[in-house]
Design a protein around this nucleic acid. Structure first.
Lengths: 187, 187
DNA sequence: ATTGAAATTGATTGTCA
DNA sequence: TGACAATCAATTTCAAT
């Protein structure tokens, strides 16, 4: 009963990552949809409508508009890095040498270990989030990256919280998701 | 055709976050499933099986095992923070005062703005990722957080890459997802 | 693990308020 | 815009090979 119940078609495509830079105004209904869909991205229009008290055709329309407006950029399964063999997480701050900035030269995205790249204000121009299988693995990546400039490495000992969910601006309804599934690399 | 095609049932529940600390060994098939499901979390067993050349019942079985093993922890819609009104992202490093460590006292998870909490090695004991609607908003949060210890704030100017996807350890098949939908707070 | 069949559920359409 | 009802299509699941 906990397991899958019923069959039925569901073929909505992942996401046409169309970028319409229109300022889509989100109302209450939109936010309820986003909340539910961030909690369970596989909800059917039927079930979703049931939860937010709206008819299936209506929610379908809303969802499509949210997708086309670029608010919803996709649907994905969330994989626990630990259980998938990527036990090590690290943050790397680096100040790029002018000529060899990682963002321009090395194509940091070429490293599968690089999960995030952000340009920052402050002394260090960039912060990277890395994910590696072992410390040895991490060491290798760090070594490679080191060529792109001065860097500071911070190895994550444990992750207390990691919830990409976007919540409604004026609301403090964080679903209090305890760090389930997130553990120390050493535990 | 780009839009939804066909109807059909799909009621698989979000995720029984059961924590079975069994070392589930992932083989090639598992990784192909994870890859596809991370790309499109709404794939049906049929379509998924079609893509990895496996029968629907088989993939269903696999997926269920991956869920129960805690490898797949959920399915969620991905929302673009920018388009959802959260234009500001920031990293905060803080060294907790012994008595008032954020992780123990303040329940950092109570702040909806706190999206990630990691304990670190190195001088600063913790790194937080924040998400706010405006700089003023961020300022307020920072101020609150400041009571928990010495901290360094880094505001994200732009995000080049943000792909939570977990890739197969030995593989370098990163889908080269350009920073679509990720832009500077100021653009 | 695959193939087949049955049952169920979901998506979509058109119409009305 | 949303709700309702009906049609159609695809999926899930179960059985047996």
């Amino acid at each position: 009963m906990t397991i899958g119940l019923a069959p039925g078609p569901r073929v909505r495509k992942a996401v046409p990552v169309n970028s319409l830079r229109s300022e889509y105004a989100l109302d209450d209904v939109d936010w309820r949809i986003l909340t539910e869909l961030q909690r369970d991205g596989r909800l059917s229009f039927n079930e979703l409508g049931r939860r937010i008290h709206l008819s299936a055709p209506s929610v379908a329309d809303r969802v499509r508009k949210l997708e086309q407006a670029g608010v919803i950029t996709g649907y994905r399964a969330v994989v626990d890095p630990q259980r998938a063999g990527h036990g090590i997480t690290a943050f790397v701050q680096l100040r790029c040498a002018l000529g060899s900035c990682l963002l321009r030269t090395g194509r940091a995205a070429d490293y599968p270990e690089v999960v995030e790249i952000h340009k920052l204000s402050g002394a260090h121009c960039t912060i990277l989030k890395l994910r590696a299988t072992t410390l040895a693995h991490l060491e290798g990546v760090i070594e490679q990256l080191g060529r792109h400039g001065e860097m500071h490495t911070h190895v994550v000992l444990s992750t207390q919280f990691d919830e990409p969910t976007v919540s409604r601006p004026g609301t403090v309804d964080r679903p209090v998701t305890p760090a389930t599934g997130w553990t120390s690399p050493a535990d």
